[in-house]
Amino acid sequence: MKVTDLSLGYGERRIIHHVDLDIPAGALTVIVGPNGSGKSTLLRGMARLLRPATGAVHLNGTDIADLGHGALARQLALLPQAPATPAGLSVGDLVARGRFPHRSWYQRWSERDEEVVRRALSQVDLIDRADEPVTELSGGQRQRAWIAMVLAQDTEHLLLDEPTTFLDLAHAVDVMTLARSVAHDSGRTVICVLHDLTLAARFADHLVVVSQGRIAAAGAPKDVLTPEELDDVFGLSAHVIDVDGAPAVVPVRRA
């Protein structure tokens, strides 16, 4: 995925200003930034939920503005922040809805659809709970069910908007482990917005820092996350130390 000169906003208000970005294929890219920096807006623009004011987003050389709704949904899946879960919807039915872009209105449920949905459910470890209502699941399980829905969409690109919000640390780690394995094991391109720097640093292959609607830095986490950068973008005084080969952000303790 390649972003060129992209500007985005709501109405008159411009939020993202002329952003250029290359997203590595088959890896987990994490977008971080302070509150209000425009990181979620950038993700919505990449998913074409917002029309660009300038610039474009290209998938494998095609401008996504030129793709039909279905064609785009077969290449790129999006999990919005805190999605609405209708009461009474079973896990299996939720994940099955991920097959919508692959079926025309006259097509019935196929073997292939069934197989993809089962694989997605196995991948998130919910295959045994397919009959339960989504609303009965715990927060972490519910998020995994939603991730299974976008996995069932069977796309090359996967966009996740703050998938760890409202999750405790153990479940957040669970979800990020899943996101990383989706990228590494099936070669998909996963792009994820996070607000937690520590999680981002531990799981990202490629880290993008957004600040005031512009890209402040992009690259490997250990190159991007420096004390100077943190002070600059987040106004945070922190040590950056190496743990298990990935950087960890530890706020400075003042006397």
Binding site: L76, P83, P86
Partner: peptide, 10 residues
């Protein structure tokens, strides 16, 4: 499922 999810599904 909501506007964004529906949009993301094409």
């Amino acid at each position: 499922l909501g506007d964004d999810t529906a949009g993301g599904l094409g």
